[in-house]
Nucleic acid binder design. Structure first.
Lengths: 249, 249
DNA sequence: GGGCGTTTTTGATCCAGATCATGGAGAGAT
DNA sequence: ATCTCTCCATGATCTGGATCAAAAACGCCC
């Protein structure tokens, strides 16, 4: 099972300060501000958040943190995709989700992370000291409210995913995944025919409680049947109705 | 599949005001106050919560609300057990959890409920108008913080359950369920050898993504092997280590 | 371009758990 | 005490997706 060992821990840290003008250095210029928790703060309040913000980047296929690590920081993703997963002792793993720009990592505000986070692509993040962030959330009421909105939204998605994992057949799972991923990407990039899939087949399988073979076969069949089209680093959805029918049962 | 149709909707409502002194009429006497969201409020603040509280009860096997219903109220469970579930169009269902005393129902504070709630036993609840509760949460900072703590705790449990549903074998699922249920009950009643199981086999199966036969066979085997003992309305765990080993893999 | 590790595809076979089928055990109701 | 209804147990059989086993298709580095 070498295939999906977590990206190896960096000697000290995979993170480097985000330089070279590739990150918005101020929130006012941030492309994901309105999607992120940060939208809770008015322009005059956002400076307080900026004071505790570090812009950091992570190369592709690197660990941001491991399950059980002390949660010194929490993060907002500003670019790239991460994979969030929990592992069993014997190597089985469950990908609990993928984090994309605008997502907040560390909602639980817990002492320790309950899952691991690894970058799938190069990633830029706003890093906040957890304690300082928690303090700010308790001072600035809107921020706490928005954190709670994010958490309860996530909770709803998690419950929906329980249905997928507990009661859906393989084909339905893959269809549901593609449609939801497309929806999330659409929020960021606008509706687009081609759908980038930064995660590998194994990641999709581990997200859906399937094997890589089943995911591969399902996608291959849909390609044969012209439901989707293979494009580099993703797919193009040709027959969305067909996928929706599959999910509806 | 008549077996687990949702309890039929009441003509108007299954709820009745809680009378006859069976509920604590004031928070100060509430047995679950310290476990519930209410613990966020100091004794001088709790009166504001009491002002918007209605004590209601529900008989066994009755619907509290259905998925998609407008969420006019949110609830704290003070006694009894409820089953929370999501249904697919063709009758498959996923039990997303069981609510016990101290639990808060309606964390999402969403316009509409994302799941159905049915009582398994007679239930007593504190009912809050959702809007009034939300308003209070935004005034009394601690309450919102505690709501968020509850939501993120639930999120962690939901993620753990994803691992169960996505990656665990049948036997591991049942063992994990028994141990977690015992843990939750222990918080309420103190450590006890006998474990009440107010939910039926079908409910457990639908919670774990299994069939009733698989659950039944697994429990039957453990009874034969003296891992558990059958008692009326529940079981007694004789060999907890064995269950823990099963979960550990 | 060619070698090499990694990921994906595809085929053959297997098996854990689903499905089908039946009998039994309680709990009410009359 | 018998009927009915619901839930649970257990045996027999089936099957969707897992597992096993190669190839093929990628990068990617030199």
């Amino acid at each position: 099972m070498e295939a999906h060992l977590p990206a190896q821990a960096a000697p000290i840290s995979n993170l480097s300060p985000c330089g070279g003008g590739q990150c918005a250095s101020v929130c006012a210029e941030c492309r994901v501000r309105l999607y992120a928790v940060c939208a809770a703060l008015a322009s005059d309040e956002i400076h307080e958040l900026e004071r505790i913000t570090q812009h950091v980047s992570l190369p592709a296929k690197a660990a941001l943190f491991h399950a059980g690590d002390e949660a010194q920081s929490v993060y907002t993703v500003t670019s790239g995709t991460l994979r969030l997963q929990r592992d069993l002792a014997d190597g089985r793993r469950q990908v609990i989700g993928f984090a994309i720009p605008g997502d907040f990592i560390g909602l639980a505000m817990d002492e320790h992370f309950g899952f691991s986070a690894d970058s799938l692509t190069p990633v830029n993040l706003c890093r906040f000291d957890r304690q300082a962030f928690a303090r700010l959330a308790h001072e600035r009421h809107g921020l706490l409210g928005r954190l709670h909105d994010f958490a309860s939204h996530e909770l709803g998605l998690a419950q929906e995913h329980m249905v997928v994992l507990g009661r859906r057949r393989a084909e339905e799972r893959v269809a549901a995944f593609l449609l939801r991923w497309r929806e999330r990407m659409a929020r960021l990039t606008g509706a687009s025919a081609t759908l980038a899939l930064p995660m590998g087949r194994q990641d999709i399988a581990d997200h859906l409680g399937l094997t890589i073979e089943t995911v591969s076969r399902t996608l291959a069949r849909w390609m044969r049947e012209k439901v989707i089209l293979d494009v580099p680093d993703g797919i193009r959805i040709l027959d969305q109705d067909r996928l929706e029918e599959t999910v509806a049962g």
